[in-house]
Design a protein around this nucleic acid. Structure first.
Lengths: 176, 176
DNA sequence: CCATATATGTCAGCCTTATTGACATATCTC
DNA sequence: GAGATATGTCAATAAGGCTGACATATATGG
C-alpha cells in the first residue's frame, strides 16, 4: 500500500514564519525517518507487484477488498479517496485477471459488491506478509512494552476527523 | 515528502503460501495505520505546495537541499533514487523560481552545489513546520518515555543496508 | 406510474512524476 | 591527449491521478 494524493482539511495552521514559532526546533529526524521508513515499507510489495505487472494502485484496491469482503464501489472510493475513473481502470484489470470478483447487490441491484477470489486472497496475503514481516522485525528492536505506544502514535498521526472511521474499518478481525 | 518508487533489495523472503507461515496472524492493523498515517502526513505539505503550483517532487528536492547545503546533483540523486532527467525537471523549476541556487564547485568545476535561497529556506521550514506539528501532536498522545522507542521503530523499518547512511545524513543538527 | 435521485460505467483529454535510451558538453585525472 | 566523470538535454513511454460530460440501470417518493 502506498498513499494516494489526498485533499484533507487543513489542520495545524502555523504562522508564516516558522522560525518565529514558539515550539522551537523542528523534529527533522522524525520527519525524515518517517519518509524513509515508508519508502522501504512499500518497496517490498512493489517487487512482488512488478512480477504481475501490477502497481501500487492495484495493491490498495486488492488489499481493502480482501479486508472488507462485499465492499461496494462507493465505499471503496471513500476509503481510497480517488475518482471512480481512476478506480475503474485498475479494478477492471483485477477483475480481468480474476483476482477480484464483482457481484450485483441482492437488496440493491445497482450496487456492486467486491470480493477477492481465492487467488486474490492469496496475493493479498502474500503482499501483507512481506509488509508484516518488516513490521514484526522492527517491533523486535523495541521493548514489547512500547508496542502499544507505537500503535497509538501512528493512530494519532491520522487526521482526527478520520480517526474513528479508520479505526472502525481496521478492527475487523483477521481476514488474512 | 512522499516516497518515490524505489527498487531496493529483496529482504524478507516468505513462503509463497503466507497462510502456512509459522508466525500466525498478519499485523493488518499496523499495516493500515502506517498507510493512513503516511497519507495524512503528506497531505499537509501538499496543500501548501498546491498554492505554489509545486508537487511532492519539489518538496523532496527542496527539503534535502535545505537540510544538506552544498549538496551535489549526484548526492541528491542518490538520496532520492530517481533519474537525473526526473530531477532536472523539478530542479529547473525550483531554480527558476529562486527557491534553490546553483553554484559551480570550487575544487571540481564539473560539480553543481545546491543551496536553498532565503525564500527556499523559508518555504522548506514552513513545510517542515506543518509536518512537525503533526508529529509533535502525535507524540503527545504517548508517554514521553516511549518516544525513543518510536524513533527506534521507524529506524528499524528502514532497509538494514541503508540504515547507517540514512542516519548519518539525518543527524546533521538543525538547519531549519 | 412517473419523476427524480442514486450507483455505477465509460469516453476523452490532461497533468505530474516517474522511466529508458541516446547523446552533448565541460572538466578532471592519468 | 585519452578516457573517465559530472552534468545537461532531447525524445518517447508509462502509471496513476484528475476533470467534465454523458449513459444506464435501479430505487424511491409522491
Amino acid at each position: 500500500m502506498e498513499a494516494p494524493v489526498v485533499r484533507g482539511k487543513v489542520e495545524a495552521q502555523i504562522a508564516n514564519d516558522p522560525e518565529a514559532r514558539a515550539g522551537g526546533a523542528l523534529p527533522y529526524e522524525l520527519i525524515e525517518l518517517f519518509f524513509f521508513a515508508y519508502r522501504d515499507f512499500v518497496s517490498d510489495p512493489d517487487r512482488i507487484l512488478a512480477e504481475l505487472e501490477f502497481g501500487r494502485a492495484h495493491h490498495r484496491v486488492l488489499h481493502f477488498v480482501n479486508r472488507n469482503p462485499g465492499l461496494t464501489i462507493a465505499e471503496l472510493l471513500d476509503i481510497l479517496k480517488i475518482t471512480k475513473q481512476s478506480l475503474n481502470r485498475v479494478l477492471k484489470e483485477l477483475v480481468g485477471t480474476a483476482f477480484i470478483e464483482v457481484r450485483t447487490g441482492q437488496a440493491d441491484r445497482r450496487q456492486r459488491h467486491l470480493h477477492a477470489t481465492a487467488s486474490g486472497h492469496a496475493l493479498a496475503a502474500r503482499l501483507a506478509a512481506v509488509q508484516g514481516e518488516r513490521i514484526r522485525q522492527a517491533l523486535q528492536s523495541v521493548p514489547a512494552s512500547a508496542h502499544p505506544a507505537i500503535e497509538a502514535y501512528l493512530t494519532a498521526m491520522i487526521d482526527p476527523e478520520e480517526r474513528k472511521q479508520v479505526l472502525s474499518r481496521i478492527r475487523k478481525g483477521p481476514v488474512g
